[in-house]
Amino acid sequence: MLTEYAFWFLTFVAIFSAIGMILSKNPVYSVLSLIVTFFAIAGHYFLLNAQFLAAVHIIVYAGAIMVLFLYVIMMLNQNEADEEKRSNWSKLLAAASFGILLIVISAAIGHGHAKEVAITQQAAFGTTETLGISLYKEFLVPFEISSVLFLAAMVGAVYLSKKEQYN
């Protein structure tokens, strides 16, 4: 019962803060709303018994990526006044294209077969230990390949910043 209330509360928070993120004119408010959204989603992970995922979600998205967003916004110091005026045409086009996307997605949801996913309430499900074992045993190769991808991205970032310095 309590879980159900928590689910609806988190869902409302997630949806409304996501809308707030899109609608607010001030980029800093957008970032803050997005952080609230991340928290609500982390709460959903908790309800699904995926504690590790919830914690990492907060650390990585709210704690690291959004800080970088905030950095960029603060360094550029973009304010409402600086926002360039977009023509009505582009607004109409954006509204139409995303409206079509909305129709496609809602049609897909309507026609798809909703699968009853049983929420596993086993104590071990979603814990760090279970996740670690499955990552390092079953999915070792994809896991390692994705870490190589991260390494490549890191080297690329270092290289780009170096090049700028010596020019």
Binding site: V28, L32, F52, A54, I58, I59, A62, G63, A64, L70
Partner: peptide, 25 residues
């Protein structure tokens, strides 16, 4: 006693930055 205590700690520590950044900006 959550069994991700250390991760929780890091999550909160990483959020501590926001107070300073928002206040300073």
């Amino acid at each position: 006693d959550i069994n991700i205590g250390i991760l929780y700690m890091f999550g909160v520590v990483s959020l501590g930055i926001y107070g300073i950044m928002i206040g300073g900006w």
